[in-house]
Design a protein around this nucleic acid. Structure first.
Lengths: 240, 240
DNA sequence: TATTTACTCCCCAGAAATAGCGATGCCAGA
DNA sequence: TCTGGCATCGCTATTTCTGGGGAGTAAATA
């Protein structure tokens, strides 16, 4: 694969200055041209399952993806969500039937067979992906990712920075912080303790514990304990 | 500030091959030399408050830090934990009395007054920091970070990768996959639905739903619904 | 000093979850 | 073919959680 001679440095510098969505799109197009790949996408996955992103995927595929809620079966999402590091799509689990149907459909919509995705995380459980996608054979792709991994990681980082600038309301999705006792309670509940066990562990009455759970629930906007624990987890307020 | 002429590329390549702790330490020393800074540290902060890391901080300071449990007041930890992006120490909140005492003590132990820390995150709320630290004036430091930000981000990434290799038990654990219906159930529970609501949403009887919850609980080794949802979340089996 | 925040404790009634035993049919892989 | 996993439905009794009250202390903050 030949890589064009626009420098990534230039594009990153431009991206850093970018102050409109158009200029970001422009950067992504330049980068696609530079790396000479089919697609390049930044994809934000919200804790509420909301999605957001920009890139070069065909619009009808993006619409289809959203409409079918493919995020729930997309192995790229699932795989990156579990990992720290950039992932080659080949290494993902495509074995399930639904997933293979999804893959076939994606290719029909013009998505390349090869892909390389970089997971990006932030506080409050925020999660995004930067993906490079192409149609070629395994060896070519291997060589491409080997060669460009470092730059792609950096680019992912820069796109994420820009995404936050443009969608600041997605960043401080943080809720009121939990008090230490509330964190204790949520943490112990998340590791499977019953209320009685938690109360005993914290050496407080079960009634007191309940007050913590309730206030945590309130702070987290949760409708029950399970919901509260789930939110605390996905916002990174507790870690299990 | 003069930057020595060992190339970062070389060090990163060496780091990639590193298979002993010594070689990692060696890489960190080379990098310190290259960037000509006082200290360079990779610091992992575990969910349980466990710590782990390597770098060039004086051993007595590291010991002191651990012993005093300074992680609880360290504004670098607090600040990076809240942010996505590299942070200059100057931008952190040093206003509290305890924090200033901490800072004074750190400097006495040989820590530079300037610092630049890069937060790194992974699944399950894992969190680490890569820090460059130096003694100089603000303008010099500004110029240094401006110049080297990109490389530092990459380096942070590589150190994190190595840290995971050497501490595989810190990586997320695998478990039996959940069936589609189990995923549905767990997901809806995680977003706050009660059993009745979930059953209605999935158009199944509450009893059937219960069977799913129970089998998911069993697969996840969870002792109750909240626990099961927490595990499903932190293993990336569901996304909320 | 006044105010807020966190932490602790108490009662009660009704709603929800859990544990125990069932059952049938379908589909895929060994 | 048969085993195992998946999806679906049923009953009963017990335990646990939730939501509605109220109240006092200590510490930090304004």
């Amino acid at each position: 694969m030949v890589v064009a001679n626009t420098t990534v440095e230039e594009v990153l510098a431009a991206l850093e200055q970018a102050d409109t969505l158009e200029s970001i799109q422009d950067a992504i197009l330049k980068l696609r041209e530079h790396f000479n790949v089919d697609n390049m996408v930044y994809h934000w996955v919200d804790s509420a399952g909301e999605q957001y992103g920009y890139g070069t995927y065909p619009l009808d595929w993006a619409a289809r993806y959203q409409e079918q809620n493919y995020i729930r079966i997309d192995p790229v999402i699932a795989g990156c969500y579990k990992r720290f590091h950039p992932v080659d799509w080949k290494k993902l689990d495509w074995s399930s039937k639904a997933v293979r149907a999804f893959q076939t459909e994606a290719i029909a919509y013009g998505i390349g067979n090869q892909g390389y995705s970089i997971p990006i995380r932030g506080p409050n459980g925020q999660f995004a992906l930067f993906t490079v996608n192409h149609t070629c054979d395994d060896d070519t792709w291997e060589e491409f990712t080997e060669t460009n991994r470092r730059e792609l990681i950096l680019i992912a980082h820069y796109f994420n920075q820009k995404a936050l600038e443009f969608e600041p309301n997605r960043a401080p999705e943080q809720s009121q912080p939990l008090s230490p006792r509330e964190i204790d309670a949520m943490t112990l509940l998340a590791i499977g303790y019953s209320r009685a066990q938690v109360a005993e562990t914290l050496s407080i009455s079960e009634h007191t514990l309940r007050v913590y759970i309730e206030s945590a629930r309130f702070k987290l906007g949760a409708s029950n304990t399970t919901h509260a624990v789930a939110r605390a987890l996905s916002r990174g307020l507790i870690v299990v």
